[in-house]
Design a protein around this nucleic acid. Structure first.
Length: 434
RNA sequence: GUGGCCGUAGCUCAGUCGGUUAGAGCGCCGGGUUGUGAUCCCGGAGGUCGGGGGUUCGAAACCCCUCGGUCACCCCA
């Protein structure tokens, strides 16, 4: 967007809605997000990865290190100058800030961290692709060891499994060492120029700028030619080959299914050696990647730090949620997490109901009530709709006995319970339900 | 950035070839006697027909612009 906006949005009254490509996540949908994050956090903890929180914006230079050939940097960054005339950018991806933090703080390797954070990319939104999207991810820095590659992949794979997304497929590849890749890129360019010279301007531009990107293009006219292209695997040096085969045997040992995809090149220039991607067949092919990552052994150095290898991945929150919905798991999660134990109906004019609510809540029982002085009938209606297991009502006659009415909203059965026994009674029934 | 489709109540949608006060289901609020939900019955609130301009005696419907959504490409999570 250059210069002044073409039209005055105030005319249309559309200022007060979420900006294009962003959205609000509200209850009960947000329960799914909470579940996804907690499942990941729990697994990250088991793998001894610690939560890391980096700024939502960084100096633009941090992200420029992820590659000049990538569209994310070239045309999708939310870049701006602050009042001190610093060039800043909203985070477009999760790895660069973590590497920057590693370079800045010199933690003892291996430095194993996880994060959940929003990313920003200025692009046309569509299903599963937004201007603000959340990624949940993990990075392990300072050590180059195939076992660590396997650990990182296994963290992600186990996460999908724990969520019930067992059908997620894992694709892996090796980008080799920088020299291998340079040689390969040259040959690839030569091949494309000789065999695809008549495929148009767009094709030629890409051959020039980043021939690797042609490999995963979706254009059907290009497919035959792509299939005949030289394969990166034939260019790997001995050490890269050995590393990659160790990663593969490590995955096999852990029973993690994968497919080697020689055309998996991924979006950022910083990848070296292992790259991987998790795809879901439940999502449309246009954005079926749930997550992906790889090794970036030169990135720390490019940020001015001492050479330090690293590997990590990012998983798209919105896409995981889409996959859960496609699998029919989303509703289940929402149902599971909406568990109100008690709804209190206030049948008197005093403070008793408020006290009952408070006693139950302090005892760890989830409780709601109505406000605004509604009729008892209306309150029972709300109790029903709240999904609570029990309705508890205060009333004149119960007050005389220091008791409340407790009604099982599923069975309709109702008993009078003395207030000093209420908490233990509800707690016991919760226990037996399990 | 390019192209296709779409925009009527909180939600899902109907609205015939342009023709009076724009409808339904669900949801929401209230009532069906004095303190009891789910079913049933009755009533009610809620709409600048995304916004602006135009054509017309007359526009939710037709045209243009714009905002937004959606899908595809590019690219990516």
């Amino acid at each position: 967007m250059e210069g002044v906006a073409k039209s005055n949005q105030a005319d249309t009254g559309n200022y007060f809605q979420a900006p294009i490509g962003t959205h609000d996540v509200l209850p009960p949908q947000s329960q799914i997000w909470a579940r996804v994050v907690s499942v990941f956090a729990e697994r990250a903890n088991r793998f001894n990865y610690g939560l890391t929180i980096t700024p939502i914006f960084e100096h633009a230079e941090v992200f420029e290190r992820i590659g000049d050939a990538s569209d994310v940097v070239r045309k999708e960054m939310y870049e701006f100058r602050d009042r001190g005339d610093r060039r800043l950018a909203l985070r477009p991806e999760g790895t660069a800030p973590v590497v920057r933090a590693f370079v800045q703080h010199h933690p003892t390797p291996p430095w194993k961290v996880w994060y959940v954070a929003p990313n920003f990319r200025y692009e046309r939104p569509q299903k599963g692709r937004y201007r603000q999207h959340w990624q949940i991810g993990a990075e392990a820095l300072g050590v180059s060891d195939p076992d660590l590659d396997v650990e990182v992949v296994s963290l992600a794979a186990g996460f999908f499994l724990a969520l019930g997304l067992g059908k997620t497929r894992l694709l892996i590849n090796s980008m080799g060492e920088p020299d291998d890749r340079i040689k390969y890129t040259e040959d690839l360019r030569k091949y494309f120029l000789s065999s695809g010279a008549n495929l148009g301007e767009e094709f030629l531009t890409r051959v020039k700028e980043n021939p690797l990107r042609i490999l995963d293009a979706k254009k059907s006219e290009w497919q035959t030619m792509i299939e005949g292209a030289p394969q990166l695997s034939d260019y790997l040096g001995d050490s890269a080959k050995e590393y990659f085969s160790k990663v593969q045997s490590g995955l096999k040992a852990l029973d993690i299914a994968f497919t080697v995809d020689p055309r998996l090149v991924r979006g950022f220039d910083y990848y070296t050696a292992t790259t991987f991607e998790f795809v879901s067949d439940d999502l449309d092919a246009a954005q079926n990647a749930l997550g992906g990552g790889g090794r970036y052994d030169n990135l720390a150095q490019e940020m001015g730090g001492d050479p330090a290898p690293g590997i990590g991945f990012g998983i798209g929150m919105e896409r995981v949620v889409l996959a859960l919905e496609a699998q029919g798991l989303a509703e289940e999660i929402i149902k599971d997490s909406a568990s109100l134990d008690v709804f209190v109906v206030d049948g008197t004019d005093d403070e008793v109901a408020a006290l009952v609510v408070n006693d139950l809540r302090e005892a760890g029982i989830s409780v709601d009530r109505s406000y605004g002085g509604r009729s008892v009938k209306a309150q029972w209606k709300l109790a029903d709709r709240s999904g609570a297991t029990y309705g508890v009502m205060t009333g004149e006659s119960e007050n005389k006995n220091n008791s409340v009415a407790v009604k099982n909203l599923k069975t309709g059965e109702q008993v009078e319970v003395r207030r000093e026994h209420l908490v233990s009674q509800i707690q016991n029934s919760k226990e037996t339900k399990r």
